[in-house]
């Protein structure tokens, strides 16, 4: 296994200068600003993003805690898809359709590390992904410790937190807590070790935290409030970032100057990888035969 933070050309703190995007952003608005810029400049002609579910209206709006992938082809569609839901949105599901009935030639995609693994596997082993490998134009990764199935979120909020789902304004996971903010401004914190069992089991064998296979990966870990930590990883990522910087899209700070910095990201990455390697080892001892390890083929 390589370095926990993966290969990268550059890492820094950044936040967008686009006020409209920043206003609704979870952190520095990096993902939305990058995609919006890429869309405007023709780097991509659409992007697969997680958006609030349209299948079940909730509180007169789309359900923000249940996300599903959409192919966004305008800035408005991107703006409607902001904030991470911490639940499962099968984004990779749409990468092929984006090149079919949507007619895209340059597809952008956002995802958590496992989804980026799916995207890269689709490129290197395009078993059922005809026409997809060469049309992936920009891959943006979001750091991820784990996600929750929708039903787990309901249980955490309603049982552990004692709040109706309809009252939730914001959910945040970080600093050891599952934090729920209600629309009346009340904040409830549930320690993550209490919610561990409710995480998606498939997350417990995941060996990537910092979306190491993305072109650019980002997240709040390590950065001051309102900013994001950004890794520029590939040639494509580097080109897109440079163009966006020239266009004045982001303000940045070097990562050395501000605490907690890179060490904090690395700490989380190591924590996740170590814990999940242990899970993989433990799986060998379930029953007398053990369970299949997807990373070791025989």
């Amino acid at each position: 296994m390589a370095a926990p933070l993966g290969q990268y050309k550059m890492v820094l703190f950044a936040r967008t200068t686009d006020k409209e995007i920043l206003r609704g952003a979870q952190n520095g608005g990096i993902v939305t600003a990058l995609l919006s810029y890429a869309l405007d400049t023709g780097i991509i002609d659409g992007a697969v993003v997680a958006a609030p579910s349209r299948s079940k209206p909730w509180r007169g709006k789309f359900d923000p805690w249940r996300s599903e992938p959409i192919v966004a082809m305008t800035r408005d569609q991107l703006l409607s898809a902001r904030k991470t839901g911490y639940n499962i949105s099968p984004n990779v599901m749409m990468i092929k359709e984006a090149t079919r009935s949507y007619g895209l030639d340059r597809v952008g995609i956002v995802g958590v590390p496992c989804q980026i693994q799916g995207v890269r596997k689709a490129q290197l082993y395009p078993i059922g992904m005809r026409g997809v490998p060469d049309k992936i134009a920009l891959v943006i990764g979001i750091y991820c410790m784990e996600v929750f199935p929708y039903q787990s979120i309901v249980q955490i909020v309603e049982d552990h937190g004692g709040v109706k789902m309809e009252s939730v304004e914001k959910i945040e996971i970080g600093k050891g807590n599952f934090t729920v903010v209600t629309e009346r401004g009340r904040t409830i914190q549930i320690p993550l070790n209490e919610t561990r069992d409710l995480e998606q089991p498939g997350c417990h064998v995941c060996l990537d935290y910092a979306a190491t296979l993305a072109d650019i990966s980002t997240g709040s870990a390590g950065s001051p409030a309102g900013w994001s930590t950004v890794f520029i990883r590939t040639k494509i990522g580097d080109e897109v970032w440079k163009r966006a910087m020239q266009a004045g899209l982001f303000e940045t700070k070097p990562i050395g100057q501000v605490e907690p910095g890179l060490g904090a990201v690395e700490k989380l990455a190591v924590e996740k990888i170590t814990r999940n390697k242990k899970t993989l080892e433990d799986r060998d001892f379930i029953g007398t035969k053990g369970l299949r390890n997807p990373y070791i083929t025989t």
Binding site: I95, Q117, V147, P149, Y150, V205
Partner: peptide, 22 residues
Amino acid sequence: LCMGCGSCAAACPVRAITMEYG
């Protein structure tokens, strides 16, 4: 092992796979 990425649904050549609650 499944983490709900949706690769399978994209790959299926007969649209047999949908994603239900991820």
